[in-house]
């Protein structure tokens, strides 16, 4: 009887602790700035809850034995010779199976909702990739329709360049809020990763492929866009910002941008490489950075991002 009480009490406490952990989840994550973010975070919170419950449960059992079942020194007595329990073993085979089935089902559901990945077209190299992405149009119907785009995302060692349908080029990505947008991802050298933590979205940019990608920003602000797939010496510096603006703000920005003459963007990789050359080219071998893209709007080293 008392054992049952202890078990119920323990499970209740464990449940309360797990709920508390779920409540902490938003503090561990950047702001939610895309339509995908709430879905991803909900799934992560669900897993945090289940995970905490299991972790605390298991660790409590271990700690109970460590605290109360230690053999005194020179005690040579054995523990209870229990060899197994078929019912228990079947339970702890089926229970994880049920949990992962639930999580898989939820994962597939969210995957279907997000539907970020469009088509992928194989090309033979950079020149063809540029031509294919330039000719791309927004496609798809219903949930897949993208009212704006395609914005070409061109990744290089180590810079990002964005080309808008209006012909404007920039080194930071500007997007209108609450509008699905289509991107065409192109790499001109090695693998890169298009990653915006505030969007909870990531897509590798693959040389030899032009990848159509859709996302919907939902919150105005300036967020980091990072290269997430290791791309060589100045990989860490290969980051820029996504600026999400109101529809009017975005149109104004496009107008102002088109008035600016194309100029080489400020490029941190290039600065680091020049510093290296000044210091006698010490360090291990690397290809030199590609020339910074000629853009209407360059990178602003002073801008501060929200996430």
């Amino acid at each position: 009887m008392t054992t049952a009480l202890w078990i119920v009490l323990g499970l209740l406490l464990d449940g309360a602790l797990s709920r508390w952990m779920v409540a902490q989840v938003p503090h561990w994550l950047p702001v939610q700035a895309s339509a995908a973010a709430p879905h991803v975070d909900a799934l992560f919170a669900l897993e945090t809850g289940i995970g905490t419950f299991l972790f605390v449960g298991c660790v409590t059992l271990i700690l109970i034995t460590v605290l109360f079942r230690r053999a005194p020194k020179y005690d040579m007595v054995n523990g209870d010779p229990i060899e197994g329990n078929l019912k228990l073993e079947i339970t702890w085979t089926l229970l994880p199976l049920l949990i992962v089935a639930l999580l898989t089902w939820q994962g597939i559901r969210v995957n279907t909702t997000l539907a970020t990945l469009g088509g992928k077209q194989r090309v033979s190299g950079g020149t063809e990739a540029m031509a294919v992405s330039a000719a791309a149009t927004t496609t798809g119907t219903g949930a897949l329709a993208a009212p704006y785009g395609p914005v070409r995302v061109i990744a290089r060692q180590w810079s990002w360049e964005f080309v808008y349908p209006e012909g404007v080029r920039s080194a930071e990505l500007h997007l209108p809020v609450d509008q699905p947008v289509q991107l065409e991802l192109v790499s001109l050298d090695v693998l890169h990763g298009f990653y915006v933590p505030a969007f909870r979205l990531k897509q590798d940019v693959i040389p030899g492929s032009v990848i159509a990608y859709r996302l919907t920003p939902t919150r105005e602000g300036r967020y980091r866009l990072r290269d997430s797939l290791f791309s060589g010496a100045y990989f860490a510096s290969n980051q820029t910002d996504v600026v999400v603006e109101s529809a009017e703000g975005f149109q104004t920005w496009l107008r102002e941008a088109s008035k600016q003459a194309p100029h080489p963007s400020w490029n941190p990789a290039r600065e680091l490489h020049e510093r290296r050359l000044r210091r006698g080219d010490q360090g291990w071998a690397t290809v030199p950075p590609a020339p910074p893209p000629l853009v209407n709007v360059g990178l602003d080293p002073q801008a501060s991002h929200e996430a």
């Binding site: 298991c58 034995t65 053999a71 229990i82 073993e89 085979t93 992962v100 994962g107």
Partner: peptide, 27 residues
């Protein structure tokens, strides 16, 4: 995703078996 999650089942069997081995032992 489905196959990867399934690995939790055999590894779970091992983890639970170790905990049950500790339970009522003389550590």
């Amino acid at each position: 995703m489905a196959t990867t999650m399934l690995i939790a089942v055999p590894t779970g069997i091992k983890v639970f078996a170790w905990i049950a081995t500790l339970w009522r032992g003389r550590l």
